[in-house]
């Protein structure tokens, strides 16, 4: 592949004092590619997103965005934190509008008008004036994702967006994310510890080891788009799930 990757990490590592969180790693994400990072809880996956979104600085290594260094690339990422981080005093439409207002530098009113246009695709139309405490967990994640899209960046960093949801809601939202993603096909890095979620949504999956995180395996997902829940039962998907589970097991240092 001679194309310049959208995101490229070279010899990247991160330590907090004596604590090594990310081991030295190389990682590439192509333009419009949906890449998942699968790893055990607390392995430092989220730290990687923090570095990309500029919250933390890498200890060593370099990051390039479309071939240019990250610090000369403005802010190419829209970050969605693990906790939905909705502002409790803002209605649904104004929480979504926060993306337009802050990242897009619009007035609150103009941001609200923009956000209103976005709500139907997220199934939030009827709830536009609801406050976060009135919403279910699944709804809150939809609002948070809409707010992420509203930032208008071409790359999304999703940190375990469905981690706190029940299994039924989670599957529903995964299929829905697949649908939303299919429209514009933004570049996505998804952090998850859910093997099925990674298989269902990704083009490619990196498996991380326990801390300090290392890439222990990399898999292409051989499934067509758009993905359906039935595909998960196919031979290719079940084989991949097995391979992923094995890789996770090796990475966590347990011997079976």
């Amino acid at each position: 592949m001679t194309k310049i990757p959208a995101i490229s990490l070279r010899r990247l590592s991160k330590s907090f004092g004596d604590l090594d969180v990310l081991g030295v790693m190389d990682l590439d994400v192509g333009r419009g590619e949906f890449v998942s990072i699968l790893g055990p809880s607390g392995c430092g996956k989220s730290t990687l997103l923090s570095i990309l979104s500029g919250i933390e600085e890498a200890t060593t290594g370099e990051i390039t965005i479309h071939g240019a260094p990250l610090n000369q690339s403005g802010q190419p990422f829209a970050w969605m934190p693990q906790n939905d981080a909705l502002l409790p005093w803002r209605t649904v439409v104004d929480n979504v509008g926060l993306g337009y207002q802050v990242a897009g530098r619009l007035s609150k009113r103009a941001a609200r008008d923009q956000a209103r246009l976005l709500l139907p695709a997220f199934g939030l139309e009827e709830f536009s004036r609801a406050l976060p405490y009135q919403l279910s967990g699944g709804m809150r994640q939809r609002v948070a994702l809409a707010r992420t899209i509203a930032q208008g960046r071409d790359m999304l960093l999703l940190d375990e967006p469905f981690g706190a949801l029940d299994a039924i809601t989670r599957t529903e939202l995964q299929l829905w994310l697949e649908q939303i993603w299919g429209v514009d096909r933004p570049t996505v890095i998804l952090i998850t510890h859910d093997v099925r979620e990674a298989v269902l949504l990704s083009d490619r999956i990196y498996v991380f080891s326990d801390r300090p995180a290392q890439i222990v395996a990399e898999f292409e997902v051989p499934l067509d788009r758009p993905r359906t829940i039935e595909m998960l039962a196919g031979a290719q998907a079940t084989q991949l799930e097995l391979d992923l589970l094995r890789a996770l097991h090796v990475g966590s240092g347990d011997t079976p």
Binding site: G54, N83, V102
Partner: peptide, 25 residues
Amino acid sequence: ERDSVTLLRTMGAGTLTVFGLVRLP
């Protein structure tokens, strides 16, 4: 909320915006 402050920072908000939109409310 720390995540709310961090989120606004990743959106490019300065100290004043963070104060007005998160800390003050």
